[in-house]
């Protein structure tokens, strides 16, 4: 079956070891994790994890069912791309000469990204957007020589009023 990317939003108790439980489940059952982000959610005491995985409908259904078996998992939602806003942030450091700075500013502007640090021979760019946009930004900066790169992984939230109800 065709392997596709899926984004899964998991609301969990903010307990020690929860990340280990979720990540361990993926590892043990052979599910892939492309990226994972964890942070606080709209409710105190609960965290939201966003996991991007690859698989097919059957695998994603199993992932969801297995996640629900974890006591600390409150809610699992598979986020389809058209009803969801998903973003990641990347910090990209390029090694450049002073005369190349304007070129970087030009690229940054068209991407509505920003320059967050300028050194004598480096610049650091921050870009926020969907995975495709971040990928494209990296491609464009590659010719300058990327000396450092850090991506957050995708975080996501469903659009409109139908936001994940928390039981």
């Amino acid at each position: 079956m065709k392997q596709e990317k899926y984004t899964i939003s998991i609301l969990v108790n903010n307990q020690p070891g929860v990340l280990q439980r979720v990540a361990g489940l993926f590892a043990r059952r052979g599910y892939n994790i492309e990226s994972i982000t964890v942070g606080s959610s709209e409710e105190q005491g609960l965290s939201r994890m966003i996991i991007v995985t690859t698989g097919d409908d059957k695998i994603v259904e199993q992932i969801s069912k297995q996640l629900y078996k974890l006591i600390d998992v409150i809610k699992v939602v598979e986020l389809s791309s058209n009803s969801t806003v998903s973003r990641e942030l990347a910090l990209i450091k390029v090694g450049i000469e002073v005369e190349q700075r304007q070129q970087i500013f030009g690229i940054v502007e068209t991407f509505r990204a920003s320059v967050v640090d300028v050194g004598s021979k480096t610049m650091m760019v921050q870009v926020v957007g969907g995975t495709d946009k971040v990928d494209a930004m990296i491609e464009l900066l590659k010719p300058f020589g990327i000396t450092g790169l850090s991506r957050t992984g995708v975080t996501a939230l469903r659009r409109g009023l139908s936001q994940q109800k928390t039981n």
Partner: peptide, 14 residues
């Protein structure tokens, strides 16, 4: 032991 037994317990508490 909670870490060691994570995949073989229904749940665990420290």
């Amino acid at each position: 032991i909670t870490g060691i037994t994570l995949p073989i317990t229904k749940h665990s508490y420290l």
